[in-house]
């Protein structure tokens, strides 16, 4: 009997072992490093003191939150109509949109961001067009700054918002809307009273997911933001591989990990609470 009970752990052990040795243990070591003095190895908070005092960390911290906020906002603004359209369009059109939203998810982040560099760059389409119609005389700076990062990350993360919304929208019968209309609600009232309340769980989980992914995104801010607009994630990289300040890198990584894990915890709790109270 005991032998049978051990089988689950035995079969799962390669996976558990791998993740523990390659991800969790190194992460734990990194956490310890964040609290250690570089030279003596003694436990200390001075690494955090150092980054909190540095201007660049503060800027990166608020910039990360600001960008994540805008990325989430635009993802909702764009993701909601896309998800609604996928849920309501005829099957063929619906599949087309679904593919258009999903396919970029599998394309390399670098490729996608590079596409935006070409579009938004000083000699890109947008600038050429705006100068062509005489709206501007100098090219606008849309790459190597926060605007570019927001555009790139929104493109990166909007599919997740669409998927989160679809999970609730697909269960929402179109007749509910028509029932509301027949009862005297105009389309706006029907949307805010009937559709929106029912999509709140999906919206909430999408918002939390996109926000947490926006905070930890790395390749897009690296390519799009350049050296002048570091975020927390690119700051870890810069401290670690450009200035070899590993104590600071570990401290920033710790802050980033805490935010990310906190978000996952909130997301799981919210999802669980919603599931247990409102299963319809």
């Amino acid at each position: 009997m005991t032998g049978k009970r051990d089988i689950p752990w035995l079969l799962a052990s390669p996976g558990i072992l791998l993740v523990t040795l390659v991800a969790l243990l190194p992460a734990a070591i990194l956490i310890v490093k964040a609290f250690q003095d570089v030279d003596t190895g003694a436990l200390t908070l001075e690494n955090f003191q150092a980054i909190f005092d540095s201007k660049i960390f503060g800027q990166a911290f608020w910039r990360t939150l600001r960008i994540a906020f805008f990325v989430t906002l635009v993802s909702v603004i764009g993701g909601y109509p896309l998800a609604l359209l996928i849920a309501r369009a005829n099957p063929r059109y619906s599949l087309v949109i679904f593919v258009i939203v999903l396919f970029p998810l599998m394309v390399s982040v670098v490729v996608r961001t590079f596409g935006w560099v070409v579009i938004l760059g000083p000699a890109g389409i947008v600038n050429e067009a705006l100068m062509g119609i005489g709206l501007i005389s100098e090219p606008l700076t849309m790459t190597q700054n926060e605007f570019g990062i927001v555009v790139g990350e929104t493109h990166l993360l909007m599919p997740y918002m669409v998927l989160a919304l679809l999970s609730v929208l697909r269960k929402l019968e179109p007749q509910l809307e028509e029932a509301a209309l027949s009862l005297g609600a105009n389309p706006l009232v029907a949307f805010f009273r009937v559709i929106l309340p029912m999509t709140v769980p999906g919206l909430l989980s999408g918002v939390l997911l996109v926000f947490s992914l926006a905070i930890t995104a790395f390749a897009t801010p690296l390519v799009m933001g350049g050296a002048r607009t570091p975020l927390l994630s690119t700051l870890v990289y810069r401290y670690a591989l450009t200035s070899y300040d590993w104590a600071s890198a570990a401290a920033v990584a710790f802050v980033l990990a805490v935010i990310a894990v906190a978000f996952v915890a909130v997301q799981k709790t919210v999802a669980w609470m919603w599931m247990s109270r409102h299963e319809f």
Binding site: E173, Q175, L176, E178, A179, S182, L183, G184, A185, N186
Partner: peptide
């Protein structure tokens, strides 16, 4: 539709 004063019952009931 919202100005027609019609009562409508659907096959799947469509209750909120």
């Amino acid at each position: 539709p919202w100005r027609r004063d019609i009562g409508l019952v659907f096959q799947n009931y469509a209750l909120f």
